[in-house]
Structure formats: structure tokens, C-alpha cells
Simulated scan of single mutants.
Amino acid sequence: MTHPPRHGVRTDLFPARAVPPRRRGHRERGRPPHADVLTPAEWRVVEAVRHGLTNPQIARRQGVSIDAVKYHVANVLQKLGFASRAELRRWQGVRRDSNLARKESSSMEPQASLGPVGQIARHVTDIAAARRWYGEVLGLPHLYSFGGLAFFDCGGLRLFLSEGEGPAESILYFRVGDIQAMHATLTVRGVEFINAPHLIHRHADGTEEWMAFFKDNEGRPLALMTQVPPATA
């Protein structure tokens, strides 16, 4: 039975059981079955693809081989019935064990407006030098760093620095309460999204960062962002 999508999420792609029932006493070899449509490793690759990373970039960030990334991408495309990475980037699937999947929507009404800007992104050529300059010269509080990424607090606004090539302009990230609802609202208004809402990072306390990128009327990138805390008991 296919259920109607909630905020654009295709629930028919998340069967209650992804493997056929086993015979009593029968033990299958290989990897353990997963209740989700994708394995954890496949989900990690999917989130990176939806974020716009190439296979070599995904391999470096996840510490795996490029062949392993290609293998996971091919498996995912086959499982979901997609023909290209472009389709995968716009797929609105949500992994079952995420906070967003467990979150109950506070309202069935579409979200009508964006929240305040929560983050500004800027590309730098030398992340170590930039980290020293923004932290020591400007005196901005350093939040955390991951490899070629660094985050600073600007009075409640987060500055995101990333090393390497990228857009010359800074990217504005708008905070929203329900990223799926806002994605649906803007899509109806004719906004062109580059990718679907996807998981960016899970903090040590379990809080998840979700984002979705779109274009303004002149084709420049903007983004939605939200933080989803773990469910309380």
C-alpha cells in the first residue's frame, strides 16, 4: 500500500521490512538486514551527493576509496529507480533513524515565511590562516572545525569558512522551523531548489543539522537550515 507523501517525503520508499521474511532456523550470511530502504553507508554517501560533493570529495571526507563510493552510488540509484545523480540530489527521502524522521510536525499548514539568517558561508584558500585571522585578529569566538572547515560565532550568526574553490559570493542560510514544509512552500511558489533537504552533520549531543540549497532570481545560491534536537524521553 502506498501512503500519501508528508511534506514531499515518499513514504512508499521506506517499506516496513526491506528483506523477505526468513524461514525458521535459517541464518543468512553477509551483512545484517536493514529496516530502512538504504544501508547506513549508503545513506552517508547519499547525503554527500545531495550536498553536491563529487566522488573523490566524498571518498576523502569519509575515508573510503573512490570505488567504494561509486559502488554505493550505483546501488542507491538501482534501489530507488533513478537514472542519474541529479535525480538523487532532488530525492526527498529521510533516513528512518534521523531526528527529522521522528519529529512530529507542529502544524499541517505550510510554513509561510523564512526565519532570520543563521549562517553565512565564505570560501578561503588557506583554512589555517583564515582560522587564525578570524579568531585572533577579529576576535570571533571559534565554535568548531572539521578538516578544511571552520565555524565562528558572530553575535548569534554563524560564519562558515571552507577551504577550496567555490562560489565567489557568500551564501546566506535562512533558519526555518520545519525545513520540509518550507521546501514545499517555496517549491509551490516557483523557487528552483538545487537539492532536497538533507542531513549535513550530527553533533555530539545528537542534534542534527539539515540544509537545502536553492537559487534566487539571478541564479545565486541561498539555503535553508534547521537544527533538529534528539527526541526527549
Rank of each mutant, 00 (worst) to 15 (best):
M1R: 15
P4A: 10
R6Y: 10
R6T: 12
G8D: 06
G8R: 08
P15R: 09
A16V: 15
A16H: 13
P20H: 11
E28M: 11
R29K: 13
R29M: 15
G30C: 13
R31M: 10
R31D: 10
P32Q: 14
H34G: 05
A35C: 14
A35K: 13
D36E: 09
V37I: 12
L38N: 07
P40F: 06
E42D: 05
W43M: 13
R44N: 04
A48Y: 01
G52Y: 03
T54H: 07
P56V: 05
I58P: 04
A59F: 08
R60D: 06
G63T: 10
D67H: 11
A68Y: 11
Y71C: 15
H72D: 09
A74Y: 09
A74F: 08
A86G: 12
L88G: 05
R90F: 04
V94P: 01
R95S: 04
N99F: 05
A101T: 00
M108I: 00
Q111N: 00
Q111F: 00
L114V: 01
P116S: 03
G118N: 00
Q119M: 09
I120N: 02
R122D: 00
H123V: 08
D126F: 06
I127R: 02
A128Q: 03
A128E: 04
R132A: 02
L140S: 08
P141V: 13
H142P: 03
Y144F: 14
G147I: 13
D153A: 10
C154F: 04
L159K: 01
G164L: 11
E165P: 09
P167W: 14
A168H: 11
L172Y: 04
L172F: 04
V176Q: 08
Q180D: 11
H183C: 05
A184D: 09
V188S: 01
R189H: 03
G190T: 04
F193T: 01
I200W: 00
G206V: 02
A212T: 08
N217D: 15
N217H: 14
E218Q: 14
P221Y: 07
P221C: 10
L222P: 10
L224P: 06
L224F: 10
Q227R: 15
Q227P: 06
A233M: 13
A233H: 14
